[in-house]
Design a protein around this nucleic acid. Structure first.
Length: 104
DNA sequence: CGGATGACCTAAG
DNA sequence: CCTTAGGCCATCC
């Protein structure tokens, strides 16, 4: 794979990421699929890991299919705070997917 | 070029 | 609810 493609992959992920509405969430699998990479959930995480910590993109709106934070501390706390601050509540450590999952 | 890697997913015990 | 096992995919090294 050339560098060009790798860079484009991140660009695609970011494009979708930026389109996620405030107060909603998507799974890694969804993000990958919407970016054009069906079944490449792990790729989504790998790409998100590249984002600078001060990015303006809503990286916090991405969680795993179980509705749980899939990020090691201290990131997990920061993600949860951001989500709660925009209206996404947690119950038993999980997000109510049926209610907050964004599906266009 | 080929195995290792990871912010994953699902089913099953 | 926790653990194991198998599958997946592009990128990394």
């Amino acid at each position: 794979m050339s560098k060009e493609q790798a860079s484009d992959t991140l660009a695609r992920i970011c494009r979708v990421l930026a389109s996620i509405p405030c107060g909603h969430v998507v799974t890694y699998g969804d993000l990958a699929e919407m970016a054009g990479f069906p079944r490449a959930a792990r790729l989504a995480g790998q790409q998100l890991r590249k984002l600078p910590k001060d990015t303006a993109l809503p990286w916090h709106r991405v969680i795993n299919a179980q509705g749980r934070i899939s990020l090691p501390e201290p990131g997990a706390s920061r993600q949860r705070e951001r989500l709660e601050s925009e209206g996404v509540s947690f119950l038993k450590g999980r997000v109510d997917m049926a209610k907050y999952r964004w599906k266009p």
